[in-house]
C-alpha cells in the first residue's frame, strides 16, 4: 500500500507540467526511498529521471516496492483540479487498477478526491552510471530558459561549448546565426543568480533545441539549473526540487555525419 501526503501540493503540479509533454505514459515507482519515475520520450532520444524522497512528504507509507503505470496527460488533468495551496494525498495499492488523489484546501473547508485509472506499461529501467563530467555549469534557470527560447526562434539545434572563457550557446538557421556567451559570475546579490562553471576540459556538443525547450518547463521548480557535459555522455540538465529530490533530463547529442 502507498499513502503519501504532500503539504506543498503545487510541487507535484509543477512536476507534472515538467514531464507531461515529453513522456506520455510512465511507471511511477514506489519504495521506502521515495516516489520516483524513469522514462524515455517516445523518440528514445531523451530520458527523464524524477525522485521525490520520502523524507520530503509530511506522511509517507510504502509497504513494499511496486510500480503504477499512469498516463501523464490524464494525471496532469487531475492535478490541475488541485488548488496551488492545496495539500495533496495520493493513495494506491500494489496490484490495484486505480490511484486516488485527494486535494484538501489549507483551511480544510474543501476536500476533493479524484480516482484515476492506471495502465499496464512495459518499461525497463536504464542503467545510468555515475560519471565524471568534463564541465558542469550552474546558472539561473530563467536565464537558461530564455536562451533556449531565443535560440529556437533562429535555429533547430544548439551547440553548447564550455571553455575557460565561459559557456557559449550557438545556433544557426535560414535567417542567420546567434551566439550567447555566459561568463562565470559569482559577484551577485543572491547565490541563485550566480553562473558557476567548473571545467575539467573544454567540451562542445550539439543538441536539438526542441528537447532543451521542453526541459525548461521544469524552471518553476528551481531557481537554478545544472548542466553537466561530457563528450562521451548525454547532457544532464538537472533541476533540484527543494528538500525533496530532483528532476534530471538526459539528452543524447547530435553528431556530425
Amino acid at each position: 500500500m502507498l499513502e503519501l501526503r504532500l503539504v506543498q501540493g503545487s510541487l507535484l503540479k509543477k512536476v507534472l507540467e515538467s514531464i507531461k509533454d515529453l513522456v506520455n505514459d510512465a511507471n511511477f515507482d514506489c519504495s521506502a526511498t521515495g516516489f520516483s519515475l524513469q522514462a524515455m520520450d517516445s523518440s528514445h532520444v531523451a530520458l527523464v529521471s524524477l525522485l521525490l524522497r520520502s523524507e520530503g512528504f509530511e506522511h509517507y507509507r510504502c509497504d513494499k516496492n511496486f510500480s503504477m503505470g499512469m498516463n501523464l496527460g490524464n494525471m496532469s488533468k487531475m492535478l490541475k483540479c488541485a488548488g496551488n495551496d492545496d495539500i495533496i494525498t495520493i493513495k494506491g495499492d500494489d496490484g490495484g487498477d486505480t490511484i486516488t488523489f485527494m486535494f484538501e484546501s489549507p483551511s480544510q473547508d474543501k476536500i476533493a478526491d479524484f480516482e484515476m485509472k492506471l495502465m499496464d506499461i512495459d518499461s525497463e529501467h536504464l542503467g545510468i552510471p555515475e560519471a565524471e563530467y568534463h564541465a558542469i555549469v550552474r546558472m539561473p534557470s530563467a536565464e537558461f530558459a530564455r536562451i533556449c527560447k531565443d535560440l529556437s526562434s533562429i535555429g533547430d539545434t544548439v551547440i553548447i561549448s564550455v571553455t575557460k572563457e565561459g559557456v557559449k550557446f550557438s545556433t544557426k538557421g535560414d535567417i542567420g546565426t546567434a551566439n550567447i556567451v555566459c561568463r562565470q559570475n559569482t559577484t551577485v546579490d543572491k547565490p541563485e543568480e550566480a553562473t558557476i562553471i567548473e571545467m575539467q576540459e573544454p567540451v562542445s556538443l550539439t543538441f536539438a533545441l526542441r528537447y532543451m525547450n521542453s526541459f525548461t518547463k521544469a524552471s518553476p521548480l528551481s531557481n537554478t539549473v545544472t548542466i553537466s557535459l561530457s563528450s562521451e555522455l548525454p547532457v544532464v540538465v538537472e533541476y533540484k526540487i527543494a528538500e525533496m529530490g530532483y528532476i534530471r533530463y538526459y539528452l543524447a547529442p547530435k553528431i556530425e555525419d
Binding site: 528514445h44 532520444v45 529501467h125 536504464l126 545510468i128 539528452l251 543524447a252 547530435k254 553528431i255 556530425e256
Partner: peptide, 14 residues
Amino acid sequence: SCTQVFILFYFLYL
C-alpha cells in the same frame, strides 16, 4: 548535417 543519437546508445537496460 548532424545525426541524432539515441539515448539507448549510452545507457543499457538494467
